[in-house]
Computed example of a mutant assay.
Amino acid sequence: MDTIYLTGLSFFANHGLFEEEARLGQRFIVDLKCELDLSAASKSDKYEDTVCYGSLAKLVESVVTNNRFNLIERLAGAICEAVLDYDSRIERVSITLHKPSAPVPVATGCFKVEITQQRI
């Protein structure tokens, strides 16, 4: 299985349990890993033999910015579902979702979840 990575995609959105998170919003960072067969693209050098990275990035942006979830686990799951629906060549997708400004009682750090889903 081959892999396409999109890392460090950064979006401002309003996810979280607390009213302030819904009202004020915060930054979310997405790392996307798509597993698929890229052998045709690696031989042909043809655009249609791969998955469009720009379209994947816009899809992730749409899920992150046009929805509202309490949990980053659910947001990551929604991104996985959208990516698998986007292109049937993608067999497995992993999302690492970073929430660097989580409202917790520590001075620094980043909280993140990783969700993986695959085609059945």
Rank of each mutant, 00 (worst) to 15 (best):
K99R: 11
K58M: 12
E21A: 03
Y5K: 08
C34E: 11
I120P: 15
I79Y: 07
S62N: 11
A13E: 04
G109Y: 05
Q117C: 10
K112P: 07
F12Q: 12
P100M: 09
S94W: 11
V83M: 13
V83Q: 14
Q118I: 00
E20T: 13
L36C: 01
E48T: 02
A78C: 06
T96A: 13
S94H: 10
R74V: 03
V113C: 12
D2N: 00
S10Q: 04
G8P: 08
C80S: 09
L97F: 06
L71K: 07
N14I: 00
V30H: 03
S62R: 07
R119N: 03
R68H: 03
E91F: 06
N70F: 03
D49Y: 00
E81S: 12
N66W: 01
I29V: 06
D85K: 14
V93P: 13
T65V: 07
F28A: 02
E48H: 08
R23I: 01
T7D: 15
M1K: 09
K33W: 02
L32N: 09
N67R: 07
E21H: 00
T108R: 13
Q26W: 01
V113T: 11
V63A: 10
A76I: 00
N67F: 03
F18W: 14
L84T: 14
T7E: 14
F111M: 12
V30K: 04
Y5I: 05
N67C: 05
F28G: 00
T96M: 14
A102H: 05
R68K: 04
L38N: 06
L59G: 10
H15M: 02
V51E: 04
Q26A: 01
A78T: 05
G77S: 06
S62T: 05
S88G: 11
T108Y: 08
L6G: 07
V93G: 10
C34K: 05
A13F: 02
F12R: 11
T7A: 09
A78H: 06
L38P: 02
C52W: 02
S55H: 05
S88E: 15
Y5V: 02
A41T: 05
